[in-house]
Simulated assay, not measured.
Amino acid sequence: MPFPILRTSLVVLTEIISLLEPNEIVTASLCSKKVRSLFKNHYQRRKPSKWRLSMFAFSSKGCVDIIPRTVNNRKVVMMARHISKLAGAEHKLIEIDGYKITDITFESGFPVLYFQDQVLVNKMIVDYVTDLFSLNIYGLVIDKNGIWAFDWLNSRQEKLLGGMELSKNSNYALNEDKTMDDVLIVRNAPSSDSVSIDFNVSDNARFNGKLGPVDVLLFDSNEHWVTYENLVKFDAIKLFVYGSTLSESDVNSFLRHWRAGGSPRLAFLRLFFKNMYTFIENFDEDLEIVETNEVRRFLVVAVEDVDEIQGNYSIQRWDGVKATICCELGYFTMVVWHTDKN
């Protein structure tokens, strides 16, 4: 026998909703306008402020997911795919919130909508989920075909994005390096918590703009274009560069820049070198670097992600602030001790 949820008391209903996962809420809300209104009213009264919505806009698909508690608990709540991805010749036309979609299926506990216009259906699922939970989009993950989503999101919500990731596209053309460069310069979100960049670009690609301020900045794979000139322009608290081709001379120049007061917000720098045999071991005398064997703990990204830093060297900035340097085969780490509670 079906459960009479629409005739359930508010107290019992609140308990029932609290037991449902976000993807189950979205799926159930599609049953009827009354059920959707019930869920919407619930979340308007009890807005889940710690939940974070993310939008993914790729050339082949889009989706909205939620992190309700921890990063490891991320759940897709709604997905959109182009009609070409739908098997079978016969499709049923469905209307949701004035949008006419070609078909809808359910996979792994969440609805998948099929549409001819990929941009339109991406907008539709974002409108639907944000309205249902009374939340803004916090994070954005796009490939180069999803650049439109940045301005669209920031124009529809008062609060700027908290995080952004530029991801690789399997169809990316290497002669379109300027697209990546324009994205990084024009799409500079000053209030972001994090920016992650994972683009494939040609060996001749260079980035000439400023990026930040952000809390966490991550460059992942094929980042030979991150030069010393770029490094000193990145305004981040925690900076990660994978696939780095920076030389020992570049690292010395950056340390000289920092020691003179440059990159004042930087608290954590980690370079993962493309050549895993790279080892930084020769520092210029004017840097006044001294050897050390101190061991300290540093909160890298999340509460559960604490690194134990065993330093090889210590360096001091002009104002007395010290930093620990750890040199190991394949990577270079620098932790700036702004306070004793880093």
Rank of each mutant, 00 (worst) to 15 (best):
residue 240 F to D: 01
residue 186 V to T: 08
residue 96 I to N: 04
residue 28 A to T: 08
residue 96 I to E: 06
residue 220 D to R: 14
residue 20 L to V: 03
residue 224 H to D: 09
residue 117 D to M: 04
residue 90 E to D: 09
residue 174 L to W: 01
residue 329 L to Y: 07
residue 325 I to G: 12
residue 192 S to Q: 01
residue 179 T to A: 00
residue 305 D to I: 14
residue 25 I to M: 04
residue 294 E to S: 15
residue 313 Y to D: 09
residue 40 K to Y: 00
residue 35 V to S: 02
residue 50 K to R: 14
residue 165 E to T: 12
residue 12 V to R: 05
residue 278 T to C: 09
residue 197 I to P: 00
residue 163 G to D: 10
residue 153 L to H: 00
residue 10 L to R: 10
residue 187 R to F: 01
residue 153 L to P: 04
residue 316 Q to F: 04
residue 69 R to P: 01
residue 330 G to Q: 11
residue 206 R to Q: 11
residue 285 E to T: 13
residue 60 S to R: 14
residue 28 A to M: 15
residue 335 V to L: 03
residue 220 D to A: 04
residue 220 D to H: 12
residue 250 D to V: 02
residue 340 D to P: 01
residue 269 L to N: 03
residue 233 K to D: 00
residue 257 H to P: 05
residue 26 V to Y: 13
residue 138 Y to N: 14
residue 284 D to L: 07
residue 322 K to W: 06
residue 40 K to C: 13
residue 301 V to S: 12
residue 199 F to C: 07
residue 329 L to S: 05
residue 199 F to M: 06
residue 166 L to Q: 01
residue 327 C to Y: 05
residue 196 S to I: 02
residue 198 D to T: 04
residue 153 L to I: 15
residue 218 L to M: 06
residue 37 S to Y: 07
residue 72 N to K: 15
residue 119 V to S: 05
residue 89 A to F: 07
residue 238 K to T: 08
residue 81 R to G: 14
residue 61 K to W: 13
residue 159 K to S: 10
residue 6 L to M: 09
residue 112 V to E: 08
residue 85 K to H: 15
residue 318 W to Q: 10
residue 222 N to Y: 10
residue 327 C to P: 04
residue 204 N to V: 08
residue 297 R to G: 02
residue 27 T to P: 00
residue 185 I to N: 10
residue 261 G to K: 05
residue 44 Q to L: 10
residue 86 L to G: 05
residue 115 F to D: 14
residue 141 V to H: 06
residue 157 Q to D: 07
residue 116 Q to K: 11
